[in-house]
């Protein structure tokens, strides 16, 4: 991301905030429905100073990080297994299809029943929503490793781990990253859903707290923090992708496309 593009983004943001402010002032919108930006800002500062906000952010970030790493790891591992052990793929694919078509969010109440109100059920839910796109990408990538490259592994007497680490995984990284990017936005949603349904900390909990107290400014602060987390997370993965896949055709000329 260049400085110019950040400046453009900031300008758009400033215009949106200005319009918001004008609408609130001109239409005289009651504060319990839509507070003015300055009220949001002061509420943000207040929450941040009481250290409650940082705790909520820490919990949500921790859940997203743990669930995402767990789901991503399992996704790659199972994607590899399904391609290398076709029998396993045939046996498990109906089950996976059922799980994949069911709205993952619907599992949340069950997870809360089983695992309690702690971070456990949220991490599990995030891992589940991360697993599917990553597994699909990984399986597509591993299946597409061309025959001569497999021959190369045989010729050089590579063991299974070397083949995976030195040939198959690098070749499969582009579709794996595509899966990770899809998963990154779903992971944030899953964290919020899990926290909304029952939690003692986290930004989703903050959302429901604001709703219960009829405090729109708390809700809006939580939304803004959540979208910042989602955006930052997505950008982090893009940066990793750009760095790791600099050799790949998909990354050439990407800067020019914005």
């Amino acid at each position: 991301m260049t400085i110019a593009s950040i400046l453009i983004a900031l300008r758009s943001l400033a215009i949106a905030v200005a319009i918001w402010w004008i609408v609130v002032l001109v239409a005289n919108v009651p504060a319990y429905l839509l507070p003015a930006p300055d009220a949001i800002a002061s509420r943000f500062v207040f929450l941040a100073q009481t250290a409650e906000l940082t705790k909520h952010i820490r919990v949500t970030l921790g859940e997203i990080g743990a669930g995402f790493i767990l789901g991503g790891f399992l996704g790659v591992a199972f994607g590899w297994l399904f391609v290398r052990v076709p029998l396993l793929g045939r046996l498990l694919s109906p089950l996976i299809l059922v799980l994949q078509t069911a709205p993952k969010i619907a599992i949340a109440p069950l997870l809360l029943l089983w695992l309690g109100l702690d971070m456990g059920p949220k991490i599990t839910l995030i891992a589940i929503v991360t697993f599917f796109p990553v597994m699909a990408g990984a399986a597509a990538g591993f299946a597409a490793v061309e025959r001569p490259y497999q021959d190369l592994g045989t010729l050089l007497h590579l063991n299974a781990w070397q083949r995976f680490r030195r040939i198959e995984l690098p070749f499969s990284l582009p579709p794996i990253f595509a899966g990770l990017r899809i998963a990154s936005t779903q992971a944030v949603t899953a964290a919020v859903i899990g926290e909304l349904m029952g939690a003692t900390y986290g930004l989703g909990y903050l959302l429901s707290l604001g709703q219960e107290n009829g405090d729109a400014s708390v809700v809006i602060v939580a939304i803004l923090v959540l979208s910042t987390i989602g955006w930052g997370f997505h950008e982090l993965i893009r940066a990793g992708e750009r760095h790791i896949l600099s050799w790949h055709a998909s990354q050439i000329g990407l800067e020019a496309r914005v």
Partner: peptide, 24 residues
Amino acid sequence: RVGFVFQEPVLLPWLSALENVRFP
């Protein structure tokens, strides 16, 4: 290990020329 040259170069696209030669 036997030396084998394919019709296509079968180089690993993320490795430099030197790293590809060094790969085995």
